[in-house]
Amino acid sequence: MKILNVYRSQPDEKTKKLVEIVNRDRESDTFELFVDNPDYDILVEKIFAADKTICWW
């Protein structure tokens, strides 16, 4: 199970806690959407490579 965690904003403590539990003992990757000019091409590649994508607030 490979999880991709995408962040629309800098994750707060609550989000970090949920991500930590969801990721436990699993392969995971991240993508930050809140940076200037996110590379959507890389994001789509990561989505296609993951079993599940979660886009956090």
Binding site: S9, D12, K14, I21, K52
Partner: peptide, 21 residues
Amino acid sequence: SIEELGEKLREMDVIVPYGII
């Protein structure tokens, strides 16, 4: 609780952080 929510999320196929904070 948030800890229990995290465990529940592990069982889910789809997780939707909804709207805005």
